[in-house]
């Protein structure tokens, strides 16, 4: 017989293939959507809060660079400002990838179980993040000069780093997500080392 493959059968094969492809596309897109940590999970909460926490460190570091000529303090501030800005970018990219909001109007720190009690600056509905400087302390840093600015910055930043380490440890206790664990661990190690460095710098200045 010189018969070509039956057109009906070919049409069926094409249709079945299209159907399978479509099903695969649906499954793949559903999988991609549900792949990341949830928008209210500890990973997303950590990424949001640590971004705000880091932003204040960046701000204080820029201020002290304008207020002192001491090369070691200026270099430390340069390092902190750059590192923490970059890390904000990393955490923001996670939130994008997870389709998670960048803001939690329910208040900060809920992922650490601090949501119930209020008491943040200005009547925040969440808890205040540990180690954050007050607006008044930042205002004083902005007015200080030289040695005074250095010791204020070092003291504020030691407290800030201690709070940061506490938050990073809190997420380590709550997540198994690879990249979150890795960044949180580097924050603990890096900031603890800088705390020791800054304590030494404070002692040199006779302030502690």
């Amino acid at each position: 017989m010189t018969e070509r493959p039956a057109p009906g059968r070919r049409a069926t094969a094409v249709l079945v293939a299209v159907l399978l492809l479509a099903a695969a596309a649906v499954a793949a897109s559903a999988f991609l959507r549900s792949g990341g940590p949830g928008p209210d999970g500890p990973e997303a909460g950590f990424a949001r809060d640590m971004s705000a926490h880091h932003a204040q460190a960046v701000r204080m570091s820029f201020i002290v660079r304008d207020r002192t000529r001491d090369e070691r303090v200026r270099l430390l501030a340069y390092d902190i400002a750059n590192t923490q800005s970059q890390q904000i970018g990393m955490m923001t990219a996670w939130l994008d990838e997870w389709d998670a909001p960048k803001a939690d109007p329910g208040g900060s720190m809920r992922w650490m179980g601090h949501g119930a009690h209020g008491g943040g600056a200005g009547g925040a509905s969440g808890a205040r993040m540990p180690g954050m400087a007050t607006e008044a302390q930042i205002g004083e840093l902005q007015k200080a000069d030289g040695r005074d600015a250095e010791t204020r910055y070092l003291s504020l930043m030691i407290e800030h780093h201690r709070g940061g380490v506490e938050m990073a440890r809190a997420v380590l206790a709550r997540t198994g997500h690879d990249r979150v664990e890795r960044l949180a661990r580097t924050m603990v190690d890096g900031q603890e080392a800088e705390i020791r460095l800054m304590e030494g710098m404070l002692r040199e200045r006779g302030a502690r």
Binding site: R48, K102, P105, S108, G123, A124, S125, G126
Partner: peptide, 14 residues
Amino acid sequence: LSALKAKVSATGYT
């Protein structure tokens, strides 16, 4: 107004 103030004070980038 105080509800709005509380919300804004608790939310970065607002």
